[in-house]
Design a binder for these strands. Structure first.
Lengths: 137, 137
DNA sequence: ATAATTTGTAACTATAATGGTTACAAATGA
DNA sequence: TCATTTGTAACCATTATAGTTACAAATTAT
């Protein structure tokens, strides 16, 4: 139940890009808003780009912009860009000689799967535009 | 989005206790099923006891048992015993001189709160008895 | 062309969380 | 009185992450 900040940082960045749609923002500029190192930003952006959410241009006067309108970027898509590890962690080696240990894993997967699905559906109800409007209200 | 195993281990333990309602189980016995060290079990059990889910008796022929019927232990209560850190991590120091950075935190809290609430409600739909029956089916 | 800028990425460090382990006092029952 | 078991502190190893430095490749501006 931890806590990597990449999802949170991603929403921050996407909202920032949505607020300045006319220009490319550099990693340096974005890092100033998030208050971290530009390389941290580029790492996060790499995932977002791989999922088609942002585009970059290297070189002088390069930078980043959204690749779709903010109302078309749902937060579940942002979440998916980082959901390599499951949210609810599973313990690894239950004793399969125990009747409970032998079957607990699939039982937990069923429950955890439903729980994460519920969260995912909630995230699908918000877009980057929603977040921007919340901030500007 | 990681992954501490305490929630998962807890459900395993509670299901095991539910399967053997007649006897006290020792940390050693429980650890054998979970396949870990007895101290890890006692640590987890401490949280569960603090939330009224299990009872212990120290000393010879001591051990652990559920403090309520398994159909009265909802998985959301188990989750609550460990939800000290929020599931979706927040980045810490957005730049408050930036209009977005200044307001992103409460906006994220609103979204994350709803997402976690959805997950919590899903967990409230399952009890330890449900997990046990799933395993025994 | 050349220089300046910016991404893209590898490599490394520091920090924090976690699981696992040892050790031992306190409680309890046989 | 002794054996057993919880309760807990202390420590170590591992892992994930954020942050940092460094530099090649790409691109634009002059």
């Amino acid at each position: 139940m931890n806590t990597n900040q990449q999802f949170s940082i991603s929403i921050h960045i996407l909202t920032l890009l949505a607020a300045m749609p006319e220009q490319l923002l550099t990693s340096e500029q974005i890092a100033a808003s998030v208050n971290t190192n530009p390389v941290v930003i580029r790492r996060v952006m790499g995932h977002l780009r791989a999922h088609g959410l942002v585009e970059s241009r290297p070189g002088a006067s390069g930078g980043w912009k959204l690749s779709r309108a903010p109302e078309q970027i749902h937060l579940c898509s942002v979440y998916d860009a980082f959901s390599h590890t499951d949210l609810l962690g599973m313990h690894r080696h239950p004793n399969t000689n125990c009747p409970i240990g032998a079957k607990i894993t699939p039982a937990l997967e069923k429950v955890f799967g439903q729980a994460e699905k519920a969260m995912h559906e909630t995230l699908s109800g918000f877009t980057v535009k929603d977040v921007l409007e919340e901030i500007q209200s």
